[in-house]
């Protein structure tokens, strides 16, 4: 399968007001394949939201990209000028629904004005009626009531707001949609409906791929094709959903899967232990494997930066698997 976007050697840091660098994403290379839902999971502060911002080309100070590329059809999107990025790439090739987007809608604008704004941003000559008509068709196609166009944000439920934003973000048929914690503020029922919409968008080939950022592995279990686990700004394991959720190899991925609490029989009898300790200070992350200080399986090799080892198509950045061949990087 071809890749729709590739990230190469990405280092994205936050500059604090006090002048330090927080190494939020620190050397990440990753490809999003056509037709897939790629889940990115990890604890808060692991860099997954930062990765989403760089991937979605929405980098804003104090975040800056120190090095690395985001390759779109062979060209580095990070090197494009602002105007090209805004007109041709953002929203059209890559679109993002950022974390908490449903709570940052302008309360004084009807949804239709939001639609017009988004369409005009890319095609200043489009007529208002045309833009709204397009949105109406799209809502209809996805089984949402077109009357939401006339509503103000506060008139919509949280779940509906989230869905409306998703539809508006995909009006220009982007190749890749990035969603960051799209359901963490929603009740389980609204969560399910919001996720069904994402799956629909993919099934109807309105979008080609999704990057789904979340801290909830049970969600990824049902929507993701592949999962990338991040820890302290780096990838620790990337592989097929079944492999990561049911047979994790990296001790951190194992710990994360082992921390899941879900209402299914058998859960109660198990003792869930979680992962002791806390993530490192990202101003001065530890040398070598960053998980080593918390790792129950650490040994003397762990003070060196791990290479990605390949285990049946997945990559694991852990010295425990050093007898495996080096992974083929995208």
């Amino acid at each position: 399968m071809p890749n729709v976007v590739e990230v190469e050697g990405l280092e994205a840091y936050y500059r604090t007001p006090a002048g330090d660098d927080i190494k939020a994403v620190d050397g990440v290379s990753l490809a999003v394949r056509e037709g897939e839902v790629l889940g990115i999971a990890g604890e808060s502060g692991c860099g997954k939201t930062t990765l989403a911002q760089v991937l979605g080309l929405t980098v804003q100070k104090p975040l800056y990209v120190r090095s690395g590329k985001v390759l779109l059809e062979g060209r580095n999107a990070l090197a494009l000028d602002r105007e090209t990025m805004r007109r041709e790439v953002r929203g059209k090739t890559i679109s993002t629904v950022p974390q908490g987007a449903m709570n940052s809608l302008n309360p004084t604008l009807r949804v239709r004005n939001l639609v017009i704004d988004v369409m005009r941003d890319h095609n200043p000559r489009i007529r208002r009626r045309e833009a709204v008509e397009r949105a109406r068709e799209r809502l209809d196609l996805l089984g949402l009531p077109p009357r939401v166009l006339e509503a103000y944000p506060h008139q919509l439920s949280g779940g509906m707001k989230q869905r409306v934003i998703t539809v508006v973000s995909t009006l220009l048929d982007p190749v890749l949609l990035i969603v960051d914690e799209p359901t963490s503020a929603l009740d389980v029922t609204s969560q399910k409906v919001a996720i069904k919409l994402l799956v629909d968008l993919l099934a109807k080939r309105i979008i080609r791929s999704i990057v789904f950022i979340t801290h909830e592995l049970p969600l990824l279990r049902h929507v993701a094709d592949r999962i990338a686990i991040m820890y302290a700004g780096r990838l620790v394991e990337v592989g097929a959903m079944e492999d990561i959720v049911f047979r994790p190899q990296h001790p951190y991925a194992e710990g994360l899967v082992g921390s899941v609490l879900v209402p299914e029989p058998g859960m109660k009898e198990r003792t869930v232990t979680g992962i002791p300790g806390r993530p490192p200070d990202m101003r001065r992350p530890p040398a070598g494997c960053r998980f080593a200080p918390r790792c129950p399986k650490r040994f003397d090799l762990c003070d060196r930066d791990p290479r990605p080892f390949g285990i049946d198509g997945r990559e694991v950045w852990c010295w425990l698997h050093r007898d495996q061949p080096n992974a083929e990087r995208p």
């Binding site: 389980v188 029922t189 969560q191 399910k192 996720i195 069904k196 799956v199 909830e216 592995l217 049970p218 969600l219 279990r221 049902h222 959720v245 049911f246 899941v260 879900v262 209402p263 299914e264 029989p265």
Partner: peptide
Amino acid sequence: RDPQHEYTKRLLADVPTLSREWIL
């Protein structure tokens, strides 16, 4: 294992778990 009230049933069906299918 055996919720009785409609609301409880819906709630449990809507929570994603690891083993049970999640019907979208």
